[in-house]
């Protein structure tokens, strides 16, 4: 069974205005340092509750900083909830920033393995997929070279090829397709569509409202860290774009 269930989930953390606190400041805490380096509580998510079952294609929309990425990372298990309960059943795989988390001194082949191992693969399960990943990335001989010499686009291709070669039950996608040339982009789109078909549950955050309406059966509108509206894509997206145009016209006025 595959499901996501969030109940009154909140993610709250504290940061210092001037970066981290040093040991000296910690010792002197309460004397005079506190005022200079105040604690700011970031309320990244609050009171988020929803359930998603097998077959759901969940879209998440909202402005920058509305909590979309935090919500995705929470579902993926990267961020723990600081309030409420998070219950996710099923093997998850996430496509966040695919360029992160590579060993620059290792070759492309090796990095395929490391990334796959992190996602829970074993040498037995990854060996048959290696060739397919290599072919999809179209990197050819570059795979023998250390990643240090790759361009950004090449790293994106490699990261995307690895992340999508593993078929998860729950797929979590955060606007990934930034770089890469045109031909790879269309190939990546096709691969995404295929993954949308095969994964039993998909959560997707994007600014591409047309794609959202097409792909999703339910859309969540995030605003200031909480759910503003949730329901059928048409309704929510219409309400969202209406609010967007009204704020932008207000700005223009």
């Amino acid at each position: 069974m595959v499901k996501i269930s969030l109940k009154d989930v909140g993610v709250q953390f504290e940061v210092r205005r001037h970066g981290r606190v040093t040991l000296k400041e910690y010792v002197l805490k309460g004397m005079f340092r506190r005022k200079r380096n105040p604690v700011i509580t970031v309320n990244a998510l609050h009171d988020v509750s929803f359930e998603a079952q097998e077959g759901d294609r969940l879209g998440i929309i909202g402005h920058n900083g509305a909590g979309k990425s935090t919500l995705l990372k929470l579902i993926a298990g990267v961020y723990p909830p600081t309030h409420g309960t998070r219950d996710v059943i099923g093997r998850t795989s996430s496509l966040f920033d695919v360029t992160l988390g590579f060993e620059l001194d290792a070759s492309g082949w090796e990095n395929i393995k490391y990334r796959a191992y992190l996602l829970g693969e074993t040498p037995q399960t990854i060996t048959p997929k290696m060739q397919e990943i290599a072919e999809f990335s179209e990197l050819g001989e570059y795979l023998d070279m250390p990643l240090r010499y790759y361009s950004t686009g090449m790293i994106v291709r490699l990261g995307f090829s690895i992340a999508t070669a593993i078929h998860p039950e729950i797929l979590i996608v955060d606007e990934v397709l930034g770089a890469g040339d045109k031909s790879f982009l269309s190939k990546a789109r096709a691969r995404m569509d295929e993954m949308f078909q095969t994964a039993s549950l998909v959560v997707l955050a994007s600014h591409d409202l047309n794609a959202m309406e097409e792909l999703c059966n339910r859309v969540i509108w995030m605003d200031h860290g909480s759910i503003r509206q949730m329901g059928p894509p048409k309704e929510v997206i219409a309400a969202y774009s209406e609010q967007q145009t009204s704020t932008s016209s207000k700005l223009a006025a």
Partner: peptide
């Protein structure tokens, strides 16, 4: 233990990087 392939490969990378 389930993630052993992951951290063992990182150990290998570290060793290789150090003596590159």
């Amino acid at each position: 233990w389930r993630k052993r392939y992951f951290w063992m490969s990182l150990v290998k990378v570290d060793l290789r990087k150090r003596y590159r």
